[in-house]
Nucleic acid binder design. Structure first.
Lengths: 197, 197
DNA sequence: GAAAACATGTAACCGGTTACATGATTCT
DNA sequence: AGAATCATGTAACCGGTTACATGTTTTC
């Protein structure tokens, strides 16, 4: 159910068409809560039915053609629902960790597989880390369009608060990635010692 | 699809009834890959149909009564499938992180809610940490029944390998919990500074 | 004229969640 | 006799995944 609120979060910055929601989603909230386009479009429809957002058909082209696109804006009910969601405690889902599951039984894999898995783990978390670092620096240098827009529509007195939490969230994700990378490196060392020692 | 392999992992130690699988699951692999009983029983049936495990009806009671229970043992095909799975690279699912999603928008929550969320985060990961530490010490002092059984059926030359990977996996989870707790504590400090400073 | 980007989905499937259902055996 | 624990599920639902479908407008 978080997708709905991730979308609301995005739409608190500015009204957008479904296409723009999807696109900016992938380069903002999507780094924390992934969703494919095929989930975003239907969810927007449902959110409109539930009154959280309001859709308006607007012309898709400047001159000829009669195609339209739908511009979604958050409603007061949507803002209220988002605020409400922000104040209720997070539900933690039960642990389900494929990498650690495998690692616990690495004695069943040969040395090459173990190394490959650990290297893939490092690669995966390095990529994640890069994405998050990229987000973080685009907050810092104000090159992040949605974040920029968010600041523009907020009173300057709120800027430190908005910025601080955003950085806090992404720094946490980066620390998480660092920890995963460090763990996998320890695993590579362990593999080497089991192999030779 | 990992549940299937988590169950196979468990059954490499010894044959068990569905009930025992479910019970020991919750106090072993279940700490890395959670599943409710309602998922375990049907999956065992499917695994038997697929020839990964073999089920045998045995008497449930020593004397009177004619009730039976089903004892499942891993087959050669099951062992092969498990080994195969251990050698293919892990698939990483896209990031979906409810706590960090919220944190990125904490400016929408009041101070009390923020504090409550962060404290709940600390509580959650402290509980997880305790579970994992418990597992780890039960490997160390040989009080973990499944782990003990696993060593018994393995040649002593394999014991260091088996033990080392198990500890590696759980130490990684503990480090993860520590990192989450540290992050939330930084959040509490940040909240205080935004509030007063 | 073709390719890229805009724009919006549907359908089938699958794994996981939640709630409920039922009966047998053993222990006190 | 009643409680605990053994023993095994079913059914409805729901969110997410994967693959596919289709047409328009803009840009080169």
């Amino acid at each position: 159910m978080s997708l709905r609120y991730a979308l609301l979060a995005l739409l608190t910055a500015q009204p957008m068409t479904g296409y723009d929601v999807a696109k900016t989603f992938h380069s903002s909230v999507g780094h924390v809560w992934h969703a494919p386009d095929s989930q975003i479009y239907p969810e927007l429809k449902r959110m409109e039915l539930d009154g959280l957002i309001r859709g308006e058909d607007i012309a898709r082209t400047s001159r000829a053609g009669n195609a339209t696109k739908r511009l979604y804006g958050i409603t007061e009910a949507g803002v209220a629902a988002f605020r409400q969601w922000m104040s209720v405690p997070t539900e933690y889902s039960a642990e389900r960790n494929p990498a650690h599951l495998r690692a616990a039984y690495f004695e069943w894999a040969d040395a090459a597989s173990v190394r490959a898995q650990l290297l893939a783990h490092i690669e995966h978390w390095t990529e994640m880390r890069e994405q998050w670092v990229g987000q973080l620096s685009s907050f810092a240098d104000r090159s992040h369009p949605i974040f920029q827009k968010r600041l523009e529509i907020s009173p300057p007195s709120e800027w430190p608060r908005i910025t601080a939490w955003k950085m806090f969230a992404y720094e946490g994700l980066i620390a998480q990635a660092d920890q995963q990378i460090a763990w996998a490196k320890k695993g590579l060392a362990l593999e080497a010692s089991l192999d030779n020692g």
